[in-house]
Write a protein that binds this DNA or RNA. Structure first.
Length: 256
DNA sequence: ATGGTGGTGCGACCA
């Protein structure tokens, strides 16, 4: 089973890229973030035509919005963090062929110390508690998405410039560690130790051309799935296409 | 350099 995550930054604009990328890579499960579409506007027919009979969405206008796609049915769908009031549509989960899959669009946080940053840390704490519960019920768990956190300095093009800045700050990294300490493993780091692999490049200042990126899009696999990881990676190609998302798709291949 | 680019949607906002 090949699973992928992609922040498309408007599914309406990026549908042609999604179609091209899916045709090339054929993921069995795909989690999308920043669809920026209300549920009634989701392009079900186009996505079904790509081979995704299973489609669950939690969208809103202009901001946020997530979707989870699968070849077959998606059961026990979750669209909210339990016991956490949140008007923003940032989470979707379901059970696909016996694997529990959670797709997250983590709060960006704007800047360290801002109101949005405090919301980010509270949101991450609530997600940690939710995932603890999910993991207890579903040992075979995958958590994917735009985490808006670079796990360590290997994931940052200029760690000095980014030191204690939003996406890299110690409290954010500790919040991510509180999640991975549940028994979830960054699939990319199971196959690659080195620095310089990124999944997001700012649209401004030619950041992609200069490879000024961060690795903030992750696929986490539970202890029970760790030994089933065949491969994992980041596909930078769509970032080179015309009118790209600022994020690249990330993926993991499991022998399940 | 208090900037820059892109999406939404037509004025700011969010990233």
């Amino acid at each position: 089973m090949k699973l992928a995550s992609w922040n498309v930054n408007s599914l309406k604009v990026r549908l042609p890229h999604l179609e091209e990328w899916v045709a090339q890579k054929r993921p069995d499960v795909l989690g999308l973030q920043e669809t920026k579409l209300e549920d009634h506007a989701f392009p079900h027919a186009a996505i079904e035509a790509l081979g995704y009979a299973g489609r669950v969405v939690s969208g809103q206008k202009t901001y946020n919005g997530v979707a989870l796609l699968a070849r077959g049915p998606i059961a026990d769908v979750a669209t909210a963090i339990p016991d956490f009031e949140d008007p923003q549509r940032r989470v979707i989960g379901g059970t696909i062929a016996g694997i529990r899959v959670i797709d997250l669009y983590v709060v960006n946080g704007e800047s360290v110390g801002s109101e949005k940053y405090d919301y980010k840390l509270a949101w991450l704490a609530a997600v940690r508690n939710w995932l603890a519960d999910e993991l207890a019920r579903h040992p075979r768990l995958v958590v994917m998405g735009d985490f808006n956190i670079a796990p360590d300095d290997r994931d940052v093009h200029d760690p000095v410039a980014w030191r204690e800045q939003v996406l890299c700050s110690t409290p954010e990294r500790e919040a991510l560690k509180a999640i991975t300490d549940l028994g979830l493993h960054d699939a990319f780091r199971l196959v690659e130790d080195g620095a310089g692999h990124y999944s997001w490049w700012d649209y401004r200042q030619g950041a992609f051309r200069r490879n000024h990126g961060l690795r903030i899009d992750l696929v986490l696999v539970s202890d029970a799935l760790k030994r089933h990881v065949l491969a994992a990676g980041i596909d930078c190609a769509p970032r080179t296409w015309d009118r790209p998302s600022d994020h690249a798709p990330v993926w993991v291949d499991l022998d399940v």
